[in-house]
Design a protein around this nucleic acid. Structure first.
Lengths: 146, 146
DNA sequence: TTAAAAAAGCAACACTGTTGCAAAAGAAAG
DNA sequence: CTTTCTTTTGCAACAGTGTTGCTTTTTTAA
């Protein structure tokens, strides 16, 4: 049950693209597959490497941007100065991301995970400040490396 | 009392550098001055612009890295893919930063502030994960823009 | 099957950050 | 104050990340 078959992933990929009224193309299928095959977040560089140099850098960038716009993936800010992308759960939709979970970066394997079950406590800001979005990034050692 | 004179800042700059056994040079003085003159955080680009093209890009990068190493400034990860730097309070020392405060990015004026009085609540991670460092970045509208 | 629309590929560019090396500036001692 | 030694600076070159304009190819829909 935890391991998905290639066919299952392929179906899921097609569904996701259709649901978001995106045309089904090679790069979109391949990149979505990469996200579905593994649990963590991916940076542009990871995708380029894992896609096996099949796609142009620009195509990868544009595909990722399209996915962000459609609410299929969301971005994660990291200290190492490269944007990471992770699949959104069902609550996200076009133009509006509901990523109320925290992000965890493993200092050992360098993977980034969305910890969907960890809720961030309300933060009391000083007078005059109003919050629109809170991003919590925890650095530490992940389940697999501990 | 809130406005510092040029002489006050100049003294503070010299003190800070000597306290950290750094030689007093033009770029270090100028860059520290910039930090002391304003409340928010600065990105490398800001510094280059405000320093009036007096210093080489590489010098600015190396100076900032030196300050980070010495615990004079700390870095703030942001979504826009450029590292920001802010002055550390007294608790920081060489090789060890105590930046337990949250960071606030104003979506209007785009300034970044350290909210030193806002403490982050303890975060309960799932089993198997251990935290080394927690970074909280709040995006919203700051005191001056509200 | 074909025409219109969308996406991919290519080239070129901008920005951010790093490294090696030679020249210049700062510190320290006589 | 001058010389020596060390540190820092500036320059050139490079690597990585991300963007834009334009042409060709692929999808879609009719």
């Amino acid at each position: 049950m935890s391991e998905k078959t290639a066919i299952q992933i392929d179906n899921q990929v097609g569904e996701l693209l259709k649901k978001n009224s995106l045309s089904v193309t090679g790069s979109r299928k391949k990149i979505l597959q990469l996200f579905l095959e593994q649990p963590g977040a991916l940076a542009h560089g990871d995708i380029e490497r894992k896609a096996g140099e099949k796609f142009d850098r620009v195509t990868v960038y544009r595909t990722l941007q399209t996915f962000v716009d459609k609410g299929i993936v969301h971005t994660i800010p990291t200290a190492d100065n490269s944007i990471r992308y992770a699949l959104c759960k069902d609550e996200c939709s076009e133009g509006h991301h509901h990523d109320h979970h925290i992000h965890f970066v493993c200092s050992n394997c360098n993977n980034t995970y969305c910890l969907d079950d960890v809720v961030t406590a309300e933060i009391k800001l000083p007078k005059g400040y109003s919050a629109e979005h809170v991003e919590v990034v925890v650095e530490g050692v992940c389940k697999n490396c501990n």
